[in-house]
């Protein structure tokens, strides 16, 4: 099979580009520490997520090592917590969100950041982040969840560590 030398060059260049792309992702995972949302959150009963051992009452908790855990249940068309009251978390602290759904498939995205996960009934999305700056973030439900989908939103307030008050233990 004969391949023109220009095409051979192109082929090699394309392969190098592909390897480089895969390289950026490997670097992102190993170097920059970008973890994928995966199966670590476990599964729950979609009708009653809190009945399961791996999901707590919705709210903000602190762990013994000073990290923060936020449990959120998404339901048509509210994030609980998040919609009726903002989720308050401290800056410069490891914050882990555990998000699940009590009804249909939703999305959970802090606009303009890479906190972004699907919220699937029966599955717990676990995503760990650290906020470098204080300020408010808009929570967007980014997956169509019914006729009121566009009204489903909430807020995460990132406050200085000194102002952070633990609401739950």
């Amino acid at each position: 099979m004969e391949i023109h030398r220009f095409e051979k060059l192109w082929l090699v260049a394309a392969l190098l580009l592909i390897v480089a792309f895969i390289g950026t992702i490997v670097y992102g995972a190993l170097g920059a520490g970008v973890a994928m949302v995966d199966d670590s959150g476990g599964t729950v009963d979609p009708d009653d997520p809190t009945a399961s051992d791996n999901f707590r009452e919705p709210g903000v908790y602190t762990t013994d090592d000073g990290d923060v855990e936020v449990y959120v249940i998404a339901r048509q068309y509210l994030f609980s917590p998040g919609s009726t009251e903002p989720i308050q978390v401290p800056a410069n602290t490891e914050v882990t969100f555990y998000v699940t759904s009590g009804d249909v498939t939703h999305g959970f995205n802090l606009a303009g950041t890479n906190v972004n996960t699907m919220v699937i009934p029966g599955q717990v999305a676990e995503i760990t982040v650290e906020f470098d700056e204080t300020g408010d973030h808009h929570i967007v439900c980014h997956e169509y969840c019914g006729v009121g989908h566009h009204d489903m939103r909430g807020t995460v307030d990132v406050v200085p560590q000194s102002q952070f008050e633990v609401s739950d233990e």
Binding site: I25, M36, V37, D38, D39
Partner: peptide, 30 residues
């Protein structure tokens, strides 16, 4: 990629295959 319930390794396999799919499209462009 951002679905809970699917381990990172399976996502990485899909990612690698996806990137390899660039090859036939690059060849086509040429």
């Amino acid at each position: 990629y951002v679905d809970p319930g699917i381990s990172e390794g399976f996502k990485a396999i899909a990612m690698t295959n996806t990137m390899m799919l660039l090859l036939p499209s690059f060849l086509t462009a040429f």
